[in-house]
Design a protein around this nucleic acid. Structure first.
Lengths: 329, 329
DNA sequence: TTGAAAGCGCTAACAT
DNA sequence: ATGTTAGCGCTTTCAA
């Protein structure tokens, strides 16, 4: 690995000039040419390690998410990485399993690595964000907002829940249940409240308590919740799940019980990953997840470039893909 | 962010001693105590950036893969990250889209960042690995081997292809087609050859050319290939896909054509991601993907710790989950 | 066991 | 526009 000194010697200029060329600072045409030529010949690649130390900011951003195996976060990661790469940043992948201690550990690492910034999908009780703020490291929250006042990109959960639930009623279902996420998470709470509101307005009374189940956003809990719903004295004829993975679990159980859509109504907030059967009979609210990632990365990079404006929250809306309307009389 | 000097001043020792404490080098009990106390009080976290520069090796490894949105690679990433984290390493996510130019760019970044090592799922024509080798950066190849002689963790593709194809014949299917990956990739080639061998031995003659389709490992090409198979003058009664995503595509097309398993036999190498219907009617060769990631990370970390042994190749085997044997007479 | 000091490769004042 | 130089925070000889 050759250094800036090797290049400067070969080009007959000072190391500072080489640095200037590689940072786009003004340099005379002639020296510019000599430097690039010398660098080319030596296969010189600037040391990001040295630069990070000197500038107290590396060309790396942290992406802190619950679990990359969840297709939602994989998509998000893809959006972030695409955008980051275009801007010359690399992305460090940090899985937290919704554990705030792990989250905090990653905050420390972000500091220790002098990372340029952090994109965070916060766990229910978010880690100690102050550590980042105090170090002056920009943070953008995605998917969920945080207590702390930082930039955020979120989904319009209320609208998503309303659209999905209303679609089920429009398709003719009457007893619409809901499988929601953990109680203490804001976004799922919003979706669940939307469901409750639509049920109330369509049926004239609030949903029975048994029709609301809580899961942890994963497939197995979708299964558990769906099983519980089917065991009710008076089971529902349709279900809304507030995320995609619990939708997968619910569909598995329904399938095993011989209750496939559209015989039983299913609506999912989020997109079913890799469906092997036609998803036309399932109502989905498709979330612009990649866009979520791209937007977050863009905002973060603006901050990294010292954009001084106050914290912003960007709200993205999902797109309703209603099931083919089989109006069951 | 306090530095090693702040700590040394507070503890009344030299900076070198602080460094020694944090690196597990011998230091007297007393000073050890004072240093840890001082560090604790100051909330000192060692600068990885400085360390990386000085040691010419950071606590970061690169994970270079085609696409994190493919659940196979998401699982792999999870295995890698879990293992890396335990050893104190962070993981940089690099999506190549099977583009060797992007791959090479990431090799340069790995060098520029002084990364500790690289885990690489090589694209068909692999990037310029020499850049890494020459810089002395350890590399472990996963999923596919490389031209260059480096450590590798791969799947026993021949066994996987054989088991899956044989299972289809055992279930009573007679005309077994194959949807394989790109022609120039070794692993899919192995799987396809295994299919060919089993077909030949079971039917007494090699498969007709039309029964072999090539795709690019993605859902859409699985669809295209399956459609082509169904349009044959004499269509197959079963199909093997050499990866999971093409299996998804094939199942979609079959479903749309009203040909669902077990009426039409389907075997997939790899696991169907998030199946919404019971996968019991589909033969899968489950690949130990997370284990693949863990093994690769473990091997890499051994190399980082200067393990001098010659390049090793570890072969992992999949597990056959045959469909419930519906023997169609 | 401990400390002093050099230096990893770069950037940014400062001086010219 | 360009060169000189002092660090960024750490690790690692070398001496003591």
């Amino acid at each position: 690995m050759s250094t800036i000194y090797d290049v400067s010697a070969r080009a007959g200029v000072s190391p500072a000039t080489v640095s200037r060329v590689f940072n786009g600072h003004p340099v005379s045409k002639e020296k510019q040419r000599r430097v690039t030529a010398a660098a080319q010949e030596l296969g010189f690649v600037p040391s990001r390690a040295a630069r990070a130390l000197r500038r107290n900011s590396s060309e790396v951003i942290a992406l802190i998410i619950p679990d990359i195996e969840n297709p939602f976060f994989a998509m998000l990661a893809r959006g972030v990485e695409d955008c980051a790469q275009d801007a010359g940043f690399s992305v460090v992948l940090c899985n937290t399993d919704d554990d705030s201690a792990k989250e905090t550990r990653y905050f420390d690492i972000a500091n220790a690595e002098n990372m340029a910034g952090v994109i965070l999908a916060p766990s229910p009780e978010c880690g100690d964000l102050e550590r980042l703020i105090q170090a002056g490291r920009p943070v953008v929250a995605v998917d969920r907002a945080t207590e702390v006042d930082v930039d955020a990109v979120v989904i319009d959960n209320r609208a998503a829940g309303t659209a999905a639930t209303a679609a089920l009623f429009d398709q003719g279902y009457r007893r619409v249940a809901c499988i929601a996420g953990p109680k203490d998470i804001e976004d799922t709470e919003e979706r669940q409240l939307a469901w409750r509101a639509v049920v109330t307005s369509r049926t004239g009374s609030p949903p029975e308590p048994g029709l609301l189940q809580h899961g942890n956003y994963r497939v197995d809990q979708g299964r558990t919740a769906m099983s519980a719903l089917l065991e009710l004295a008076e089971p529902p004829d349709a279900v809304l799940t507030t995320n995609n993975l619990m939708g997968v679990g619910a569909l598995q159980v329904l399938h095993e019980a011989g209750l496939t859509p559209p015989g039983f109504g299913v609506a999912v907030i989020g997109e079913l990953p890799f469906p092997t059967v036609s998803p036309d009979v399932i109502t989905q609210v498709q979330l612009p997840v990649r866009q979520l990632g791209r937007t977050a990365a863009t905002m973060l990079i603006e901050r990294i470039n010292c954009d001084p404006q106050p914290a912003r929250t960007v709200v993205l809306r999902g797109v309703l893909k209603a099931a083919d309307t089989v109006n069951r009389s």
